[in-house]
């Protein structure tokens, strides 16, 4: 069994509103799985179903090959987008309480908490109340509480919001470390740069339907447009440009490079070979820049959402 979490044809209605329509996803073990989609697409509903906060109308969810059961909650760590802790409760007490709700013993929880508090260097917060902490500090506590019980599956909904760049980086490293240690991560975000950076699989949900999923590299391969960024150096800019335009589809390009006289995006047809293009270019001018344009997650997201 290579998939830690499988959702099979999951549908959910709220009254007459269809929140999820026959959505299936498979999250491979040890992956960081990006769950993407515009606002209101149904991501949170899916996450809540995985967390057994709501039940699907139809469809089934499997964790590690087993039908999802209430006991599985101790294998899942969930950081919701709407963060919150009891404001008037002390940090340590609260963390212990939440850890016990996840099925840890008090002793075990205390040991793990000491480890994390040392690691993030926040040992002196133990007796502070949440309301005395800043938003970012409270987020750190919430992160610790989410991962404390060493869940197999971690679900992070916008984990970096509210963190400054330094702390965001710290948390990112921790997430990567948790993956190293064997956890599988579902990662829901609108920040495409962190998707590029972290995710190896993604699923895109739009208007309650899954419209795209798979390995990020595969998806990029599917979405590439056979476009090449070209930077040339020549004395006869106009004639070279015109010669290229006669033979290929050309778009303006804006990449950074040193003193290129000609900057172009050249789109090839499916049957064209990039070598032919390169040969053509070398015959006309000095080639300083020749890169295939790989679609960013951001481009794919926008394009897919628009097309649907």
């Amino acid at each position: 069994m290579n998939n830690l979490l499988v959702a099979d044809s999951v549908s959910k209605h709220y009254g007459s509103f269809r929140a999820l329509n026959d959505v299936s996803i498979a999250v491979p073990k040890g992956s960081i799985f990006g769950l993407l989609g515009p606002n209101g697409a149904g991501k949170t509903t899916l996450i809540r179903i995985v967390n057994q906060i709501t039940m699907p109308d139809t469809g089934r969810v499997f964790l590690d090959g087993e039908n999802l059961r209430p006991e599985h909650i101790k294998n899942i760590g969930y950081l919701p987008e709407e963060r919150g802790l009891y404001k008037s409760m002390k940090v340590g007490e609260q963390a212990l309480y939440l850890a016990q709700l996840k099925g840890m013993t008090k002793q075990d929880a205390r040991k793990r908490l000491n480890y994390w508090f040392d690691k993030l260097d926040i040992g002196d917060w133990w007796n502070k109340k949440i309301q005395e902490l800043s938003k970012g500090q409270a987020q750190k506590i919430q992160f610790i509480v989410t991962v404390l019980h060493r869940p197999k599956l971690l679900i992070f909904d916008e984990p970096f919001s509210g963190f400054d760049p330094i702390n965001a980086n710290l948390i990112k490293d921790e997430i990567l470390q948790l993956r190293e240690d064997g956890a599988t991560v579902i990662f829901s975000t609108h920040r495409m740069e962190s998707v590029e950076e972290l995710c190896d699989h993604i699923a895109l949900i739009h208007k309650s339907n899954k419209v795209l999923d798979g390995k990020l590299t595969d998806i990029k391969r599917q979405h590439k447009t056979n476009t090449f960024e070209v930077g040339l150096q020549t004395d006869t800019i106009d004639s070279v440009t015109n010669a290229i335009k006669e033979k290929f589809k050309v778009l303006p390009a804006t990449f950074k490079n040193l003193n290129d006289d000609v900057k172009l995006n050249i789109k090839l047809d499916a049957h064209d070979n990039p070598n032919d293009l390169l040969r053509f270019l070398t015959s006309k001018a000095e080639v300083h820049h020749f890169v295939e344009v790989i679609p960013s997650a951001n481009d794919i997201f926008i394009q897919t959402v628009k097309n649907n």
Partner: peptide, 16 residues
């Protein structure tokens, strides 16, 4: 209070 402090979703993912 539990609702406004938004802790509810964390709790509800652990208990019925």
């Amino acid at each position: 209070e539990e609702k406004t402090s938004r802790i509810i979703e964390v709790i509800i993912s652990s208990v019925k």
